[in-house]
Design a protein around this nucleic acid. Sequence first.
DNA 1: ATCAATTGCGTAATGCTATAACGTGTGCGA
DNA 2: TCGCACACGTTATAGCATTACGCAATTGAT
Lengths: 132, 132
Amino acid sequence: MTTPQLTKNQALVFDTLTKAEAPLSAYTILDKLRDHGFRAPLQVYRALDKLLEYGVVHRLESINSFVACAHPDENCHSHGLVAFAICESCGQVIEFHDHEVDHRLMGWLKSQKFKAEKSTIEIRGHCASCAA
Amino acid sequence: MTTPQLTKNQALVFDTLTKAEAPLSAYTILDKLRDHGFRAPLQVYRALDKLLEYGVVHRLESINSFVACAHPDENCHSHGLVAFAICESCGQVIEFHDHEVDHRLMGWLKSQKFKAEKSTIEIRGHCASCAA
DNA sequence: ATCAATTGCGTAATGCTATAACGTGTGCGA
DNA sequence: TCGCACACGTTATAGCATTACGCAATTGAT
Ligand SMILES: [Zn+2]
Ligand SMILES: [Zn+2]
Ligand SMILES: [Zn+2]
Ligand SMILES: [Zn+2]
């Protein structure tokens, strides 16, 4: 998927996520963009939907938040699973890919004749800095 | 973790989940239990918290729902990751465990000095019956 | 037996997350 | 010019989860 030119709203949301040091909720993004004319949640959600579609943003299901893709250049996303380690202290997210895990999971799913479409792999815990 | 005797509310919620053929949201559980005296979401959430703690119920983060554990007898949960395949047509959930995936993920996390505490692995798609 | 601490329960209020429904404007090809 | 697709703005609503308060039952010393 090649990323088309972003619209104004999409660019604002993407910028906000890119500059953030931790995942942001849709409503947090909304608050950060009020000065730029954002007034309603839907403006954020609509932009996020497109950014997710383009693959430049990920949604973290376990914390209802969004994060800019850490590997926008690699094309891993098209043929592999993405996993996230999320620090519950500082919020930092490490995004990673592992074809071994990928193959193993896909193999199991295939044996069950389950047709996979979307995947979520999220590990919550504490990062090296925060693990005291 | 050994499961203590369930309280009345906990047993009602657990029963509801056990009988269900698909994951249920907290509010759906609430509706199903109104005849048994449930009036507020908190009654459900409190019971769910305990059931999750005992490991007899799982939360599916990607669909904000809860499901009874499919392997209540095995003690896999204590030393391994749990994964779910969720059919978006019929709602059916397949719960499975794979030590290979487990080791691989944990190895990676260890290399990052990340201390894992909770994990979420959920694959959404279509089950064998629904995959037309 | 009594007191204190813990746990569960009931209710009301609130907060956070996400979508539905409606209408407007703009660009672009038929 | 018409029709269509798409982005946008606004209001209202739906869905998910927690905070806060008080009371009752249980437990476990003293
Ligand atoms: Zn990515
Ligand atoms: Zn951290
Ligand atoms: Zn289980
Ligand atoms: Zn199905």
